[in-house]
């Protein structure tokens, strides 16, 4: 088991950066590790690598995309609904020569990942949703931080413990935010929720108990809708679960990707002195 405190001292694997052409977009991605592919889709703040990525890449080929419209990519006015973006991302994965894969989505990217699984259930082996934004309290609009401190307080259980991260530059936000709002869609999306009822693949939904953006209680709706869903609360983590409790998050995510719903059976030995 990897403890949070030692996470930051783990040697980072080498992340290769490249671009892939898919569906008319030039999409940036980083990748590390080898073996079975794990595709990760970031949250509304864009692509940020956490120590969790490093640990996951020790046993898998981790591919973290920067979705069209984020980062330095041109404004994305083409995608009107989340399934549009999900379709493009499926093509991007294919363009890397990957057919079947594990999929992980964070917050905004959690909704993208859900749609990818719904559009191509035969290609996705298992789905991990970190603080997914697909189902939100009625009437809640995603808040926008105006200072770096506000951003840290929104994302982290203990903002004082996190190295300060500057706000994205206003020009980039002006380019990204309309697309985020458009694709995020309504707090409750009946079309998505109806489709979730017949999604047969194993899903792990993870919420931090100290999430200030999306109440962790939203997790139970995923559990109600999805035929094969495990709900997991990571204690004392905020919205940025993998950043706040990398060891805790990664242990559960890896275990789930290895064993799917059978991850509920403990494989830890309790033998102290063999």
């Amino acid at each position: 088991m990897v403890h949070d405190t030692v996470m930051h001292s783990i040697e980072s694997p080498t992340w290769q950066e490249d671009h892939v052409e898919a569906d008319g977009f030039r999409i940036r991605y980083v990748e590390a590790g080898g073996g079975a592919a794990l595709v990760h889709l970031h949250g509304a703040g864009g692509l940020v690598l956490t120590p969790s990525h490093d640990v996951l890449a020790r046993e898998r080929r981790v591919i973290a995309f920067e979705m069209p419209g984020f980062g330095a990519s041109p404004e994305n006015t083409r995608h009107q609904k989340m399934p549009d973006l999900a379709g493009t991302m499926l093509e991007a994965v294919s363009a890397l020569g990957v057919d079947r894969f594990d999929l992980m989505g964070t917050s905004f990217g959690g909704k993208t990942a859900l749609w990818m699984a719904l559009l191509a259930p035969e290609r996705v082996l298992a789905l991990v949703l970190e603080s997914p934004a697909a189902i939100r309290p009625d009437g809640q609009r995603p808040p926008q931080a105006t200072t770096a401190e506000e951003l840290a307080a929104m994302l982290h259980a203990h903002p004082e413990r996190v190295p300060p991260r500057p706000l994205p530059d206003p020009e980039q936000t002006a380019r990204t935010w309309p697309m985020v709002m458009r694709l995020m869609g309504p707090a409750r999306d009946p079309e998505l929720e109806e489709a979730m009822r017949s999604l047969q693949l194993p899903v792990l939904v993870v919420f931090g108990t100290a999430d200030r953006l999306i109440p962790p209680e939203m997790g139970r709706t995923y559990k109600e809708l999805l035929p094969s869903c495990q709900l997991l609360f990571v204690y004392d983590a905020g919205h940025a679960v993998a950043a706040d409790r990398p060891g805790a998050f990664t242990e559960a995510a890896s275990d789930f990707l290895d064993h799917h719903e059978q991850y509920v059976v403990s494989r830890r030995s309790s033998v102290l002195f063999p």
Partner: peptide, 19 residues
Amino acid sequence: RAWTEPQPFGWQGRHFRFR
């Protein structure tokens, strides 16, 4: 959480872990 959460849940704590 065990008293109030109506759906089965896992707990990934610092000191306690339940799937």
